[in-house]
Write a protein that binds this DNA or RNA. Structure first.
Lengths: 157, 157
DNA sequence: GTGATTAGACAACCTTGTTGTCTATTTGAG
DNA sequence: CTCAAATAGACAACAAGGTTGTCTAATCAC
């Protein structure tokens, strides 16, 4: 049986998992426990202007209820603060805290380092080509991180 | 802020999701509802010799309890049959049904077609290069899923 | 033969999602 | 201006795919 197409999909997943697991492990060494890609993605969206639960849901293409749960978690870890919006009494305005910004910066450094390590393994050209090939496939697709459980495992590997 | 490393991880995820979503959609058009990659992986592992819940768990590097849940679901959809093993009264022997085999074949055809479409977009060379670059990064991580009789490591240790 | 290992069932729980329902507030059409 | 519709967010129940932990029954090793 030909499995080339299915194996390719698997390979993409394995590539993401490898990076995400290694990155999460490095972050936990810095004291950021249970920080996962979805959290970084949410913080990024908030920084980009999605400063309420409903807006964050729209930005991440998830329901506002799911966004609210993520916000609760991020607030509990001190990465996000919520304050009543004086101009709209229904809203709770979101703000990324200093601690949140620091974590994001450290996480970015870690993932940049992982990418550099990959480059040194296979050459910068190969990584750049991979990015271009992938980019032309996914196009402008919104990245949805909505597969429950796919990243819930401990990065023990 | 440099986001090259983090963006690369997200790109890999988006690539997987694009393929998986398109593939699942095609499968659902053929009447296979809610078939996800994890189900295909499980069927593949069973075919490769993991013919009991505990063995399937080891093959997929998940707990036997998680494997049993997947088996229950696959049995409910008629892709897998369970029969008592006459040679070991503790075991329930797994078998991929005709319907399961048919679904796998149709799924493989779909994913092969997705891969071919991608090739026609960016060139066969680019896709082959991407596969090689990824393979050298993830190493044996992906082979683990497809290797029959994987017994080098016990996840329940 | 006996103690350790193994298979599988069952239950409780986690995470990241989903619907559905509800109240309070804001918006907008007439 | 008013009142219906839309929106924000809270709360609850549930799904999917995992995790521990506990338990019984069967098999294996010595």
């Amino acid at each position: 049986m030909s499995r080339r197409g299915a194996d390719l999909a698997l390979l993409l997943l394995a590539g993401f998992r490898s990076m995400a697991d290694r990155g999460s492990e490095e972050l936990s060494k810095l004291g950021y426990d249970d920080v996962r890609p979805v959290h970084d993605f949410a913080l990024h969206s908030i920084l980009a202007g999605a400063d309420s639960a409903s807006e964050l849901g729209r930005a991440m293409s998830i329901t506002k209820q799911a966004a609210a749960k993520t916000i609760t978690l991020l607030e509990g870890r001190g990465f996000v603060a919520r304050e009543p919006d004086p101009s709209d009494k229904r809203r709770m305005q979101l703000r990324v805290t200093e601690r949140g910004l620091t974590m994001m910066r450290e996480g970015e450094a870690i993932f940049d380092r992982l990418r550099t390590e990959w480059e040194s393994q296979v050459g910068a050209d190969a990584v750049a080509a991979l990015e271009q090939t992938l980019q032309s496939y996914v196009g402008a697709d919104v990245i949805r991180i909505d597969t429950p459980g796919w990243d819930a495992r401990d990065p023990e590997a």
